[in-house]
Simulated assay, not measured.
Amino acid sequence: MFFVRTASERDLAKVSALLAETWHATYDALYGADKVSEITAHWHSVPALKAKLERKDSEFVVADNGRELAGMGYVAMSKDRPKTAFLRQLYVLPRYQRQGIGRDMFAELETCFPDAEYMRLHVEPRNGAAISFYERLGFEKIGEATEGGALGLPALVLEKRLDF
């Protein structure tokens, strides 16, 4: 059984490896293995993850069973949109998907900012499994965006009203 807990600095190497594995499994067919390796080296390095861990107005969680990490999630309050939390990352290793781990991490993350009225995220338009997952959680498509700056990755913008 996996438990959701706040991530610590000692988790970051495992989280980096988890993200690399998950990204390759999900995005190699869309972007190619070399591009995915480039993205993960930049976005999912231990220093990049440490910066997220240290950011104020954010929450970084992992799903841990005492032996390994099966997933990670990261949400931060938007700097541009008041009362909006931005779900930046929610990933579960492929071998543990469809077991409720993502749902459990999301349940924790959506309660982290009681003043937030909305949660927003970006998702790759061709990632049907992720889109379906977020729709089941109550997210709706509100627009499109480009993710990753110079990388120019397409994204759907999904949003959920947070009612507590």
Rank of each mutant, 00 (worst) to 15 (best):
F2L: 00
F2A: 00
F2I: 00
F2C: 00
F3T: 13
V4A: 11
V4L: 07
R5F: 08
T6L: 11
A7E: 10
L12S: 03
L12W: 06
L12M: 09
A13P: 09
A13G: 12
K14V: 06
K14R: 15
S16L: 09
L19R: 10
L19P: 03
A20D: 15
E21F: 06
E21R: 12
E21N: 13
H24A: 03
A25K: 02
A25L: 01
T26I: 09
T26Y: 11
Y27P: 09
Y27R: 05
D28C: 11
Y31K: 12
A33T: 13
A33M: 09
K35T: 13
V36C: 08
E38Y: 13
I39D: 08
T40W: 04
W43K: 08
H44I: 00
H44G: 00
A48G: 05
L49A: 02
K50D: 10
L53F: 05
E54N: 13
D57V: 00
D57N: 15
S58R: 08
S58K: 08
E59Q: 12
F60V: 05
F60N: 04
V62D: 12
A63V: 06
D64W: 02
N65T: 04
N65A: 05
G66A: 12
R67I: 07
A70L: 04
A70I: 04
M72T: 13
G73Q: 08
Y74C: 03
Y74H: 09
Y74I: 04
M77W: 04
S78D: 07
S78P: 04
D80S: 08
P82I: 00
P82G: 00
K83W: 07
T84F: 02
A85K: 03
A85H: 06
F86S: 01
F86I: 01
F86H: 10
F86Q: 05
F86A: 00
R88H: 15
R88A: 15
R88F: 13
Y91C: 07
V92G: 07
P94Q: 02
P94F: 00
Y96S: 05
Q97K: 05
Q97M: 08
G100D: 11
G100I: 06
I101S: 02
I101P: 01
D104L: 08
F106C: 01
A107S: 15
E110S: 06
E110A: 02
T111A: 08
F113S: 02
P114A: 09
P114Q: 11
A116S: 11
A116T: 02
E117H: 07
Y118R: 10
M119F: 02
L121Y: 14
H122T: 09
H122L: 13
V123N: 13
P125D: 13
G128N: 14
A130S: 15
S132H: 15
F133Y: 14
F133M: 08
Y134K: 01
E135W: 01
L137C: 07
L137M: 14
F139N: 03
F139T: 03
E140T: 08
E140G: 03
K141C: 06
K141A: 11
I142M: 06
I142A: 02
A145D: 15
T146I: 15
E147T: 10
E147M: 14
G149K: 03
G149P: 05
G152V: 08
G152P: 13
P154D: 12
L158I: 11
E159G: 01
K160L: 03
R161H: 14
R161I: 12
R161F: 07
D163Q: 10
D163P: 01
